[in-house]
C-alpha cells in the first residue's frame, strides 16, 4: 500500500521521496482539498468509501497507509 500511495503522489502531484513519517500538510504542502482528492482517488481505485470520521485524523503517509490496509483488507474479506 505504501508503494501505491507513493505512486499516486507522484502521478497526481509530482511528489517523490516520501517516507511513512512524511506529513501531508506540513511537509508536502497538500491543501485540505488535495487531501480530499487523494482520498477520492483511493476510493475509486479500490471501490470503497473511506470514513470521514477516520481519515480526518490522518496526518502522515504511514497513517493513511495503515488505514487503507485495514479497510482494503476488511473489504477483501
Amino acid at each position: 500500500m505504501f508503494d501505491e500511495i507513493k505512486k499516486i503522489l507522484d502521478e497526481e502531484y509530482h511528489i517523490t521521496g516520501v517516507s511513512k513519517e512524511t506529513n501531508f500538510r506540513k511537509e508536502l504542502g497538500l491543501s485540505s482539498f488535495d487531501f480530499l482528492n487523494l482520498i477520492c482517488i483511493f476510493e475509486e481505485r479500490y471501490g470503497v468509501e473511506l470514513d470521514e470520521e477516520k481519515y480526518i485524523h490522518v496526518v502522515t503517509v504511514g497513517e493513511l497507509c495503515d488505514y487503507l490496509e485495514t479497510l482494503v483488507g476488511n473489504d477483501a474479506d
Partner: peptide, 9 residues
C-alpha cells in the same frame, strides 16, 4: 483540474 476525483465524487 487538481481536484478532479473529488469533483467527480
Amino acid at each position: 483540474d487538481r481536484y478532479s476525483a473529488l469533483i467527480s465524487k
